[in-house]
Design a protein around this nucleic acid. Structure first.
Length: 255
DNA sequence: ATGGTTGCTTAGCAA
């Protein structure tokens, strides 16, 4: 089973890249973030024509996630379903085959100390509560997406310059740590220990050609699923050329 | 150097 994740930065703007990519790699499950479109305007027909079933959870202008799958997905959940009034579409979970899969777009946080940063930390806490209430660490479960946290300094091109900045701040690393402590592992690090492997490069300042990137797009798996992961890779080539997303896709293979 | 690039929506926000 192949599971992929990609922050596409607008599914409509990126469709001419996403469809050929899907056709080439044929993931069984494809988690998408930053679709930036309401559900009734999602390019469903084009994606179905490429052989995928579509679950989406979007909103106007910002955010939005989707889960595409070759087989129909079941038991879909949109949002945390908690007591918080929250219009931001960032969380979608469904089951494909024997695996429960979540596509998540963690809030960026903008700057440390801002209201948006507080929302980000709170969002992690709500996610952690969702896990306690709706999942079990013993089940085969993967959460894939733009986590908007570089887990450690190996994931950052300039750890000194980024120290205590948003995406690298100890408070958000600790919040991600609580998610992992519940029972989800960053499976990329089971297969690659080296520094300098990134999934996002800013559009500005020629960051991609200079390889000034961060690894913030993760596949988080429970132990039983992590044990089935035979390979995981970042498709850096998908960041090249005309009209790229600022993120590259990540593809994981499971037995 | 508070810049710079992109997307959505059309002036300003978010990333």
């Amino acid at each position: 089973m192949k599971i992929a994740t990609w922050n596409v930065n607008s599914i409509r703007k990126r469709l001419d890249r996403v469809i050929p990519w899907l056709t080439q790699y044929q993931p069984d499950v494809f988690c998408v973030q930053e679709t930036k479109v309401e559900d009734d305007a999602f390019p469903r027909l084009e994606i179905e024509a490429a052989g995928y079933h579509v679950l989406c959870h979007g909103q106007k202008t910002y955010n939005g996630v989707a889960l595409l799958s070759r087989q129909p997905a079941r038991d879909a959940v949109r949002g945390f379903g908690d007591s918080v009034e929250d219009a931001q579409a960032r969380f979608l979970v469904a089951t494909v085959g024997d695996v429960r899969v979540g596509t998540v777009y963690v809030p960026n946080g903008q700057t440390v100390g801002s209201d948006k940063f507080a929302y980000k930390l709170d969002w992690f806490g709500r996610w952690r509560k969702w896990l306690s209430a709706h999942a079990d660490p013993g089940m085969p479960l993967a959460f894939c997406g733009d986590i908007n946290v570089a887990p450690d300094d190996r994931d950052v091109y300039d750890p000194v310059g980024w120290k205590d900045q948003v995406l690298c701040h100890p408070d958000e690393r600790a919040a991600l740590g609580e998610i992992c402590r519940w029972g989800l592992a960053d499976v990329f690090r089971q297969h690659h220990a080296e520094a300098g492997l990134y999934s996002w490069w800013d559009y500005r300042q020629l960051a991609f050609p200079k390889d000034l990137g961060l690894r913030i797009d993760l596949v988080l798996c429970t132990a039983s699923l992590a044990a089935r992961c035979t390979s995981i890779a970042i498709d850096r080539d998908a960041r090249k050329g005309q009209n790229p997303s600022d993120h590259a896709p990540v593809i994981a293979e499971f037995t």
